[in-house]
Design a binder for these strands. Structure first.
Length: 423
RNA sequence: GGAGAGAUGGCCGAGUGGUCUAAGGCGCACGCCUGGAGAGCGUGUAUGCGCCAAAAGCGCAUCAUGGGUUCGAAUCCCAUUCUCUCCGCCA
């Protein structure tokens, strides 16, 4: 949620910046400013009414104490009128606050000035390209065929037991999953991250805090009976740890890592994008979350980018890094790097990680603050990134490492898998 | 799931209808004292919103959350959430 103060200070700049995200904010900005004016006027009237009522109550107290209880009648009547007025004003204020928030949450985060303009994926800027040549093996198979050939992932079984997009991993496939999770966690811990194992379900406040609600309602699985949401990413619980908190300066930066299963309904997806491991309803991911001083959040973003790069290098995967253009940037993000690995057999790039700086957008919703040197509270900046998401890494490993004998396990993973070949 | 007890500031903890503008203590910050430190003494120490160009200041709200009773609620009533104890169930 954008800070009201930013909108009020320079509405035109907000409109101009959101245009980079292909978002026409003119109407919303105008409405927000006018609702806010109404809100403040109402608050002022209400406060005055309450102040008078407080004074009357105090006076009546004094009268009773001095045995002049009968004189209080007139004041009681005035108080009754005030009560009615303040109750009405309270309702008006509540409605104004709700209306304001309803409009505010509709505005996407402002893009960082360096974000290139553009409509979609084709306009993303190549930030970095790994130093790899991709050799297309003759007769290379896509991972869904390899999964079947080596009997390591069973999509049909998942469909039988649960539904499409809920595969079983089996034998060396299951072991590979476990190896990757441990590898990613150990790497993160080695880089100084603190490991968390979060709940897989969150309440409504948490889903709102990181921006899944109201924008992505319908993309999450909801346990209706208990009003809990299955997490679409560990970002949600791990960032919400800090909801409604004022951190001390020395608590920053926060650098957390968490492994979790992730659950996504993926309503509206179709075609080649959902084949095999490309898009699942349940998948595993190791997520890194930073909470940073606003002055240093872009340094943190670059740190995260370097860190994710080292993982891909260690796994020997052909990768590239894209800086997302305005049109491809998510609702909540100010700047995002996407990491893609090349899938030789599918002959396409697969997104395996997305590293973003949300600046104060999530913090403002969550009331995540810290105390600055001057003693004032300020909103912290939040960032997160996948490090990494398993399915597409597995897909890329299977496809890129296949040879006549089987699928070679990268050196870095062998101590985790306990085998060096899937055959 | 059943029964009971509870939730007060950064922390502990007092507070059963009006002066609560929340006692007291701890912690923290600053000052005095000291050769220095400690002890001691003094002062200060929440968050959000509004008024104000801003600061100062003032007002409003907040004693788990949401309602209610009352001229007036931390205090009384109702609901919810969470914590603890006992019982039941259970990996």
């Amino acid at each position: 949620m954008l800070q009201l103060s930013i909108i009020k200070e320079d509405p035109q700049q907000v409109i101009d910046l959101l245009r980079i995200k292909n978002f026409d904010a003119r109407e919303l900005v105008e409405e927000i400013i006018s609702i806010d004016k109404h809100r403040r006027e109402t608050q002022k009237k209400l406060d005055e009414g309450l102040a008078e009522a407080n004074n009357i109550a105090r006076e009546i107290g004094v009268m009773f104490k001095e045995g002049r209880g009968r004189e209080a009648e007139a004041l009681k009547q005035r108080s009754a009128v005030l009560k009615k007025e303040t109750q009405e004003l309270g309702t008006v204020l509540e409605e104004a606050v709700a209306a304001l928030e309803e409009k505010l949450v509709m505005l996407p985060n402002l893009p960082h000035p360096s974000v290139p303009a553009g409509k979609g994926a084709e306009d993303n800027e190549l930030a970095e390209s790994g130093d790899f040549t991709v050799d297309l093996t003759e007769g290379a198979l896509p991972h869904w065929d390899l999964a079947k050939k080596y009997d390591i992932i069973d999509f049909d079984l998942g469909a039988k037991v649960t539904g499409a997009g809920f595969p079983f991993y089996k034998g060396k496939g299951a072991r590979l999953q476990r190896a990757l999770i441990n590898f990613f966690l150990d790497e993160a811990i080695g880089a100084g991250y603190v490991e968390y194992q979060p709940p897989l379900f969150v309440n409504e406040d948490s889903a709102f805090g990181t921006g899944q609600l109201p924008d992505k309602d319908g993309q999450m699985y909801l346990i209706g009976e208990d009003r809990l949401y299955a997490i679409p990413t560990a970002e949600v619980p791990v960032t919400n740890i800090y909801r409604d908190m004022i951190l001390r300066r020395e608590d920053l930066p926060v650098r957390n890592v968490a492994y979790s299963s992730c659950f996504r309904r993926e309503a509206g997806s179709y075609g080649k994008d959902v084949r095999g491991l490309n898009r699942l309803h349940q998948f595993d991911k190791v997520e890194i979350v930073h909470i940073s001083h606003p002055d240093r959040s872009y340094d943190a973003l670059e740190d995260m980018r370097r860190y994710v790069t080292t993982l891909l290098v260690k796994l020997g995967l052909p990768y590239r890094v894209l800086k997302l253009c305005g049109g491809d940037l998510s609702f909540t993000s100010a700047l995002t790097y996407d990491f893609e690995v090349y899938s030789a057999a599918q002959q396409r790039w697969l997104e395996v990680s997305s590293v973003s700086n949300f600046e104060a957008f999530q913090s403002n919703r969550m009331k995540l603050r810290f105390r600055d040197e001057d003693g004032k509270t300020r909103l912290a900046h939040t960032l997160n990134g996948s490090a990494l998401a398993l399915p597409r890494i597995v897909a890329a490993l299977l496809e890129n490492n296949q040879n006549s004998r089987g699928i070679a396990i990268p050196e870095a993973l062998r101590s985790y898998t306990g085998f060096d070949l899937i055959s």
